[in-house]
Design a protein around this nucleic acid. Structure first.
Lengths: 188, 188
DNA sequence: ACCTGAACACCGTTCAAGT
DNA sequence: ACCTGAACACCGTTCAAGT
């Protein structure tokens, strides 16, 4: 979908990047109500061009989510190779949340996306999943993570924090929610 | 807003109830995309009548949330007077989540509502808050709840579970999320 | 007081014409 | 190949006319 199948013509490529940047800004600024027309205008292109890349508003949001997912993977890899296995899980979770905090567009997209439209993301999800799975298993071996945690739960846990971030005014709200989660992830 | 200021004329009252029921059904069925026109039609009234009671789609959703909030209060009161203080908190949280599980309309509304439009709900929130606060404090006195939990966090915690419910396909996903939270709420 | 539904406004999406 | 923007469709909201 957004995948760079064949290399794009230089101008097209530049337009694509501008569209993504514009979308991120406007979603962050105005929430779901950011208009396609405005996103195109701010990127300096016609609406048609926007629709050429993203057949629907939802697919545009999906693209934004995807970009972040890739960053998540980088972060997870870094944590895995750097951190004491005993607190690696807590560290990834905190760092992933941190990244997302400033990205209202991502929060929004996460909230608004029907799970059906995620096809494009599957591969990215798999890449991230593989690392997270190892982090969790290592944590369990070391006795720092409750043994019944399945790595499939990672998404649900992060989703719950992202949502809190988005809906609870008080900035400290989601941090406290996450700390409760982290406490609940330790064995016993 | 929805408050029954002056008693409504009998037919108006019946229409109001039908609108609420219709809205709950259609939101549950079609999500945010349920149309005002259809909601009115299913209730057997014209759109104008719908807009007479609820000046905006959002205010209609707010009304639905409000109804549930009142039910939350009833549940909380029941739990407080019935339950061992040692597991009262866990019990309310589980029961509140249970109620909301079948109510996609509520989940949706929670997700979609800007926090600004909650004015109508303040009183209901206060009523619920008073009880929850006591439940938490009692739990802390008995040593069953971590001492640094503030009752203001209750909303964030429930919000995180509701969101998980709505976004994670696997039904067991939110239960597992909630169990992690509950584990994290115990002292130590 | 309350109801109705045609008309209006807004915004997502399409497509014919252009380079 | 890719771009443009006027036109279209859909749906939230209003309001003049009716009981």
């Amino acid at each position: 979908m957004t995948t760079a199948q064949r290399p794009l013509r230089a101008d097209a490529r530049r337009n694509l990047e501008r569209i993504l940047a514009s979308a991120r800004t406007l979603f962050a600024e105005r929430g779901v109500h950011a208009q396609m027309e405005d996103i195109a205008a701010r990127a300096g292109v016609g609406v048609g061009t926007l629709y050429r890349r993203f057949p629907t508003k939802e697919s545009l949001m999906t693209a934004l989510v995807r970009e972040r997912f890739q960053e998540f993977t980088v972060i997870a890899a870094e944590v895995e190779s750097t951190c004491d296995p005993a607190d690696a899980l807590a560290t990834v979770m905190r760092r992933h949340a941190e990244v997302v905090e400033d990205d209202a567009a991502f929060q929004l997209a996460m909230m608004d996306l029907a799970s059906l439209h995620w096809e494009g993301i599957e591969q990215d999800k798999a890449a991230l999943g593989a690392i997270v799975r190892r982090i969790i298993e290592r944590g369990q071996e070391v006795g720092a993570v409750r043994p019944d945690l399945r790595f499939e739960d990672y998404g649900a846990l992060m989703c719950s924090t992202t949502a809190t971030m988005h809906f609870i005014e008080d900035k400290s709200g989601w941090r406290r929610q996450q700390e409760v989660l982290l406490a609940g992830l330790r064995p016993d």
